[in-house]
C-alpha cells in the first residue's frame, strides 16, 4: 500500500506542470480592490460613462422602445410559424449545381457522392447547430441532368429521383444526426481530434416514415421494394429504366453505407490518424459490440 502511494505521488509529481509565469501565485499586495472609491480615492465615472441610463444604471426593460408600440407586441399571433424553430431544415442544392460541380471537377462522380463530397467542394455550407440536417436536392436542371451517379442526399423530391434514375444513376435518402454531421463537415479536423468515428444514430420518430419509405428511396427501406418503386416511377414518368446490373460501374452504383456508417469505407469505432496514415481498429469485445449495434 505504502509503496503504491509513493509511486502514485511520484508519478503525479512527474506529471505536474513545470513552474512558469502562468501558474505561480500573484504578487503580494497585487489584489484588485473590490470597493468603488469615491472622490479622490479613484472617483470620477468608474467606467460607466457620462449621462443617461448607462451612468445611472437604470436600464430600460428589454424590448421597451421609449413609448413606441414595441416591436415584439406590434404584430398579432401568427400560428403558422408555430414550432418552426424546431423543424429540420435541409439547405438546397439543385441538380444543375450538382452537374456544375461534377463538370468542373469539384466532385468525382466515378465514386459514390455523399454529403462529405458536396461539403468538400467548398461551395455548400451546412450549420447543424441551426437545425440544418443536410442536402435537399432540388429539381432545377432536371431536364438536362445526364450523368450516371450514385448519390446520397438527405431529402429529394420525386422529380429529382426520376431525373437521376432516368440517367442511369442511383439515389438514396439518408439521415445523419447532428454529431455525425459535425464529423462530416470538416473531416480533417475531426480525424485530428483523435476520437473514434461515432455511430450514426437513428432518425427521430417524425422522420422515420420518410427514411423507411421505398418511394422516397429511404436508406431504411427494403431494397426489393426500392427496385419495385424504381420501375413504378419509370412508368409514371415514361422512361425506360437503364439496367444497372449490366453496367460496367455496377460496383460503384450499388455501393451503400450501413445505417450505422458515416464515411464510405470507414466503420464506427475506428480511429484514423492522418499523420501516420494509419487506421486503428479496436479489439475489445465490448467496444466492438457497442459500435456494431
Amino acid at each position: 500500500m505504502g509503496s503504491n502511494t509513493t509511486e502514485k505521488a511520484l508519478s503525479m509529481l512527474r506529471f505536474l506542470p513545470r513552474v512558469c509565469l502562468s501558474n505561480i501565485r500573484p504578487h503580494p499586495n497585487s489584489r484588485i480592490r473590490d470597493k468603488r472609491g469615491r472622490g479622490q480615492h479613484g472617483g470620477d465615472k468608474h467606467g460607466c460613462g457620462n449621462k443617461g441610463s448607462g451612468q445611472r444604471q437604470n436600464y430600460m426593460r428589454l424590448g421597451y422602445e421609449t413609448g413606441n408600440n414595441p416591436f415584439y407586441l406590434r404584430f398579432p399571433h401568427e400560428p403558422y410559424y408555430q414550432r418552426h424553430h424546431l423543424r429540420r431544415e435541409y439547405p438546397p442544392v439543385s441538380l444543375l449545381q450538382l452537374l456544375k460541380f461534377i463538370e468542373l471537377n469539384r466532385i468525382d462522380h466515378t465514386k459514390p457522392i455523399d454529403l462529405v463530397s458536396v461539403v468538400n467542394t467548398g461551395l455548400y455550407k451546412l450549420l447543424p447547430d441551426q437545425r440544418q440536417y443536410g442536402i435537399q436536392l432540388t429539381d432545377e436542371g432536371a431536364d438536362v441532368f445526364n450523368l450516371k451517379i450514385n448519390i446520397e442526399v438527405q431529402y429529394a423530391t420525386e422529380v429529382v429521383i426520376a431525373a437521376i434514375e432516368k440517367a442511369g444513376g442511383v439515389i438514396t435518402t439518408a439521415y445523419y444526426d447532428q454529431h455525425s454531421l459535425q464529423c462530416m463537415l470538416n473531416t480533417k479536423k475531426f480525424f485530428e481530434r483523435g476520437v473514434p468515428i461515432p455511430k450514426r444514430m437513428m432518425p427521430p420518430p417524425d422522420a422515420i416514415e420518410y427514411y423507411s419509405d421505398p418511394a422516397k428511396r429511404g436508406y431504411l427501406a427494403d431494397p426489393d421494394k426500392i427496385s419495385e418503386e424504381r420501375l413504378v416511377l419509370a412508368q409514371k414518368y415514361g422512361y425506360s429504366l437503364p439496367e444497372i446490373e449490366k453496367d460496367p460501374s455496377y460496383d460503384m452504383l450499388t455501393e451503400r453505407k450501413d445505417p450505422r456508417q458515416i464515411f464510405y469505407g470507414l466503420h464506427p469505432g475506428w480511429v484514423v490518424n492522418l499523420r501516420d496514415k494509419a487506421i486503428l481498429k479496436p479489439q475489445d469485445e465490448e467496444l466492438l459490440k457497442y459500435y456494431a449495434n
Binding site: 480525424f191 481530434r193 483523435g194 476520437v195 480511429v271 490518424n273 499523420r275 486503428l280 465490448e286 467496444l287
Partner: peptide, 27 residues
Amino acid sequence: YMRRLYGRYGEASGVDPAICWPVKEEL
C-alpha cells in the same frame, strides 16, 4: 488534449493510442 496530440502528431507524440477509446465506465 492527449487525444488531439495523438490525432495531430501520430506516434511521434508518444501518446498511447489506447486513450482514444472510452474506458469501461464511459462505455
